[in-house]
């Protein structure tokens, strides 16, 4: 299956892309996608995403416009659109 991922802020700088299409095995989870990104983009991507193998609290992932909770085990589907965002807020 193929999913589309759009990058924001730091991730756009890390990947040097605005978005990309990624092929994954059927039944792949978001965790599988993130592992692919780490493999593709290396240590900096891993540091940005994970702390002790847990997704950092301020990383926000949306699928088809909806923010996803319990994100790592979420199963992806063909043609899903994902956003990868570092979430800050006001002050």
């Amino acid at each position: 299956m193929e999913v589309t991922i759009k990058y924001f802020s730091v991730f756009r700088a890390l990947t040097n892309r605005v978005e990309e299409n990624i092929n994954l095995a059927a039944g792949a989870t978001i965790n599988d996608l993130l592992e692919y990104l780490v493999k593709e983009y290396g240590r900096k991507m891993e540091e940005m995403l994970f702390s002790r193998k847990k997704l950092k609290g301020y990383i926000r992932i949306t699928i088809n416009g909806k923010i996803v909770r319990n994100v790592q085990e979420y199963e992806l589907h063909d043609q899903d659109n994902l956003y990868l965002i570092v979430a800050l807020a006001g002050g």
């Binding site: 924001f8 949306t62 956003y83 807020a89």
Partner: peptide, 12 residues
Amino acid sequence: ALPTIDLAGNVE
């Protein structure tokens, strides 16, 4: 203005 929709990644 507290324009945080982008900063908070508030897609909704």
